[in-house]
């Protein structure tokens, strides 16, 4: 079952790789959105995906939990290994995949339910809690980890949709954490938020990397620089460069990367 490419990956590198993309191509109908993307994502790190809009970074992110399945005419070719297992092989279970790979979306999308029910949604469908008190505990710890507990502990029965934008996004992060995923995908989680709320989410991302592997798509170079350890630069569907965030921002190898991060286009 488990397929591991051993050709160009040493044993130690393998141990440090949680997701390995190998020559991934994505097509929307006739349009090729991703070309031959290969990248290893390391556990318990924040990997930022940057690049100008339309470069394929969000498309790549959506491959990692197969959200692209929901898009009509979308076709993925290549290998995407999660802990060595190809998540696109026939018969691979997507629901199971998505419980291990959580996702936070561009626009906060809390369910029109209470704050409590939003966080409890995942544990409930996955039957993770035995009894109410255990579920209460899960909700509390998820909200605490998302840094939202103190603000909402007195109004857990209030609607999630009535929180402010930044709080909604943290609620969505809490909701994702509650499922206890190993990986959290974040698709421009701050693009709809004001600078103060953005700051709080960035702090949160920085803290969460201790327990989770985070893949973050962002528009903002500063955000990538502040929060990530590794950065990948996408351009026109190709992965041009990947490396330590410090290296990418100080001595980019590719001239386009440099042009982008210095703000000459994007």
């Amino acid at each position: 079952m488990v397929t591991i490419e051993t050709r160009d990956a040493s044993a130690s590198a393998r141990a440090e790789t949680i997701i390995s993309a190998q020559k991934v191509n994505v097509y929307y109908g006739d349009f090729q959105a991703l070309k031959e993307v290969s990248i290893d994502i390391r556990p318990r790190q924040v990997t930022a995906l940057i690049g100008p809009s339309g470069c394929g970074k969000s498309t790549f992110l959506r491959c990692l939990n197969r959200m692209n399945d929901l898009i009509l005419n979308c076709r993925v070719v290549g290998k995407l290994l999660l802990n060595g297992e190809d998540i696109h092989r026939p018969g691979f279970d997507v629901v199971d995949l998505r419980t291990h790979v959580g996702m936070v979306f561009q626009k906060p999308n809390p369910f029109p339910k209470s704050i409590y029910d939003n966080v409890a949604y995942g544990p409930r469908i996955h039957k993770m809690a035995n009894g109410r008190s255990e579920l209460d505990g899960m909700v509390e710890s998820s909200l605490r980890r998302a840094g939202l507990w103190d603000e909402v502990k007195d109004k857990l029965a209030g609607l999630g949709t009535e929180l402010s934008g930044g709080q909604q996004q943290r609620l969505c992060i809490a909701r994702a954490i509650a499922v206890e995923p190993k990986i959290i995908l974040m698709d421009e989680p701050c693009s709809a938020l004001d600078p103060v709320a953005t700051g709080r989410i960035e702090e949160l991302i920085f803290e969460l990397r201790r327990d989770y592997t985070i893949v973050l798509v962002t528009h903002s170079m500063q955000q990538a620089a502040r929060t990530s350890q590794r950065t990948a630069f996408f351009h026109l569907g190709e992965l041009l460069e990947v490396g330590d965030t410090n290296d990418i921002f100080t001595k980019p190898r590719h001239e386009r990367t440099e042009a982008y991060i210095t703000g000459r286009y994007g």
Binding site: G102, F105, P110, F111, K113
Partner: peptide, 27 residues
Amino acid sequence: VPDSLRHGAIGLGSTQLEATARVIIPA
């Protein structure tokens, strides 16, 4: 019902039926 809610529920590992019954229909 906006697609963002569907994706939110699917992204948490719901089956299509769970997303429908627990999120989309209530909404």
